[in-house]
Design a protein around this nucleic acid. Sequence first.
DNA 1: ACCATCTCTGGACAGTCGTCAAGGATTTCC
DNA 2: GGAAATCCTTGACGACTGTCCAGAGATGGT
Lengths: 212, 212
Amino acid sequence: MTQVVHAGRARVTRRQIDKFAERRDQLADSALLTLSELGYARTSLREIAQNSNFSHGVLHYYFSDKVELILHCVRRYKTECVTRYDEIVACAATPGELAAGFGEAMAATLRNEAHLHRLWYDMRSQSLFEPSFRTDILELDHGLEQMIWRIVLRYSELAGRPLAVSRSIAYAVFDGLFQQGLLKHLCGDEQAVQDLASSVENVLLGLVLVPR
Amino acid sequence: MTQVVHAGRARVTRRQIDKFAERRDQLADSALLTLSELGYARTSLREIAQNSNFSHGVLHYYFSDKVELILHCVRRYKTECVTRYDEIVACAATPGELAAGFGEAMAATLRNEAHLHRLWYDMRSQSLFEPSFRTDILELDHGLEQMIWRIVLRYSELAGRPLAVSRSIAYAVFDGLFQQGLLKHLCGDEQAVQDLASSVENVLLGLVLVPR
DNA sequence: ACCATCTCTGGACAGTCGTCAAGGATTTCC
DNA sequence: GGAAATCCTTGACGACTGTCCAGAGATGGT
């Protein structure tokens, strides 16, 4: 196992560790590309290697097995995901601005990163069957829940109205909206992206209570 | 191909056709059992056959290939699914009764048929990658959307308040809730089932507009 | 009772899979 | 510049996959 080799050495330079980590990330990016194109069920290590500049054997030099590679992919995907809307939350000055920005940002990532998102839903489904995926997938899911909650909470503040739903409900609702939008978008519905933006605004409005 | 054999015969008795269809359903049930246990990615035809009373060769006698078998499974799953809440819709006399009945029924199927539901989400994710699944999966998804719409529409009637969301939004919202509930339930959260029931009631209430 | 047809078994097939190890190629360090 | 560590390729392995097929067994009509 490669990690053992590195851990066992008396002195390991900083550069070597960085290079090792960099190549891992590089291979994980190739894996993400292949996975998002073919889906988990149809992706083999040879296919991943073919989409990189290396041969299939090298994958076992940087990852102990297929599971570790895929989990590394998931973690890498996560880091660029859970802060997606934070800038909008920080900048929006009115509830309308926040709702519109959130809707547009969701629609934009639906359009631009559809293949990565379908991989996410694929992996989350896999975690229902494969316990070794669960820890990381749940952690990522929890991160997404918190991300959504920051938006909803800020919207409540800006609107000056209390929230009608819990954190987990808020996430479930927007996750459901996004997933349906993804399904339609990938099935060729030209309206799907635009519909998602307006749906998100519509639903966000309904999550805060109307003052009596 | 077996269908050709049957179509080509001069005279085919009614009983023979029924028997053929019955065995297809029987094998599809075994397949559903295996699929819901292992997931799409890990299910082989030999495994399916091992969970039935037959050998693996017979699957190609009743189904032209793996795709046709799985699609038959999906269609069979659908028929017992899209009318799940119709009785509640027909019987409920007050909005509160409908909301409670809907929430409890959703929680009940989450508890009792969790493995089948995780297969559904697995298959729907697969359809994002495998175009040959799309037609049937979309059709089933549409049926579920209509099922949810009947509930929401009836709730609006009973409450005497107009709806705040479209049909597709209503489905996306409850689908998201159910999927999050399934994730938690299968990961050992004892509260997940109970939470789903109350969440469903909570959200259903928010889908109708408050009269000004 | 016989024969045609339907039904099912079990093995063979060509591929593909994850994994691993032997050894070349490259880099690093003294 | 040479030894040592690291990096990468190549080929092999056993297991597993979907598919096909020859033939045995069961069934039903006459």
